[in-house]
Computed example of a mutant assay.
Amino acid sequence: MLAGLLRSLSDDVAIDLGTENTRVAVAGRGVIVSEPSVVAVDLGTRRIAARGLAVGHLAKQIEGRTPSDIEVRHPVREGVIADFQLCEAMLRILLGKTRQSRLRLPPRAVVGLTQTATEVERRAIFNSVARAGARKVFGWSKAMAAAVGVGLPVAEPTASAICDIGAGTAEIAVVSLGRVVAARSVRIGGQVFDQALCDHLKRHRRLRVGLPSAEQLRIAHGAAQSDDDEARAEVAGVDAATGLPRTLAVSRAEMAQALAEPLRKLADAVREVVESLGIELAADLARHGLTLSGGAAQLARLDRFLSDQLGIPVQLAVDPAGAVIRGLLTCAEHLDAWKSALVSVH
């Protein structure tokens, strides 16, 4: 009776705490918050700038353009918390945006976890979410959440494969009968792709570019495969020799060349997961293939590249960037039924 009363007076929320973006959804209301996982800090007071409001979109807008006494920081790196206090402050502000009334009790929260998160890293996530305002925190595999979010038949006695590529990590998993039967998490994602572009342009074209510019170039013009030397996109940076501003035209073929190494490592990681399966589960993947999700999975022709490397069908999910939060929201909306699949330290 008390549990039912608590549920009627509070919300159940889902939190996808990502390296690049944090999304918060509320059961029955959908995704309410989707903002960059960044915080601007006033170095003089060591507090969040703009009277405690420089979080998310506001902080992202000033990144790379701040005065010397303000620094933009990323509390989450490679899928785990890098700065506990800033992460807690960021989550408190973002969770506050989902509350419809101060009379509501603190919510229960389901948060996504990477496959390789240690017990210490998991506890840091649980503690940050709890201190940010949740009364109870549950954790669920991001890979399983992504599989549910893209609509894979995770409860059926057949293998379904998912590769969710975020900014910091790629979560690879094969699920069957509602369980993860093989999985791996690798620190390859959008930020690794962007760094590879920066390194390539500096080494081969003598142009130094910032990570935000490399990200824009990847999103607008990047490709995993291409022989197109004609279509080009301009990127601006600083000449490595003179230190003066310079622009450069980059072809899709050169982009694919720059991304070759991290893409090879991604393909090897997926191959290891597939090769660890039994014969029948592996045969399922020959028929059903691999589904890609996550923001960085939208790299052009990545599905073709992985299909060529692995010899199985590969398809990009609809709205791949929202896969994890959709899966977590499904769990939050049926939280009592899914509890046995979740972990909690509170």
Rank of each mutant, 00 (worst) to 15 (best):
R252S: 01
L263V: 04
P262A: 03
A269Y: 04
A260L: 01
G294V: 11
H288E: 11
S276E: 10
A256Y: 02
G289E: 02
S251M: 01
D268Q: 14
L266Q: 05
S293G: 08
G278L: 11
M255Y: 06
L285D: 09
L290T: 07
D268P: 02
R252G: 12
A282E: 11
A256D: 03
T291M: 15
V270W: 05
E275T: 13
R264H: 14
L259T: 10
K265L: 14
L292Q: 12
V274I: 15
L263P: 08
T291V: 15
L266E: 06
G278V: 09
E275C: 12
V273G: 04
I279R: 14
R271Y: 09
S251A: 10
P262W: 02
R271G: 11
R271S: 15
L277A: 02
E261Q: 13
A267L: 05
L259M: 10
E280A: 15
V274N: 02
R271K: 14
R287H: 04
V274R: 13
R287Q: 07
V250T: 03
T291C: 15
D284L: 09
L259Y: 10
L292H: 12
L292T: 09
S251P: 03
A256F: 01
E254G: 02
Q257M: 08
A267I: 02
R271F: 08
V274L: 15
G278D: 15
G294P: 13
R252H: 05
G294F: 06
V273Q: 06
A260I: 00
E272L: 12
V250P: 07
A282G: 13
V250H: 01
L285S: 09
E275Y: 08
L277C: 03
E254R: 00
H288C: 09
A260M: 01
M255S: 06
M255H: 10
A256M: 03
M255R: 08
E254L: 03
D284C: 11
P262Q: 03
G295D: 10
A253W: 00
A249V: 00
V250M: 07
A258L: 04
S251E: 00
R287D: 04
L277D: 01
D284V: 03
R271I: 01
L277S: 01
L266H: 06
A283M: 05
I279H: 13
I279W: 12
E261G: 04
K265T: 03
Q257F: 00
A253N: 05
R271T: 11
A286F: 09
E275M: 14
E280M: 13
T291S: 14
T291W: 10
S276F: 10
E280N: 13
A260T: 01
A253L: 00
E280W: 10
R264G: 13
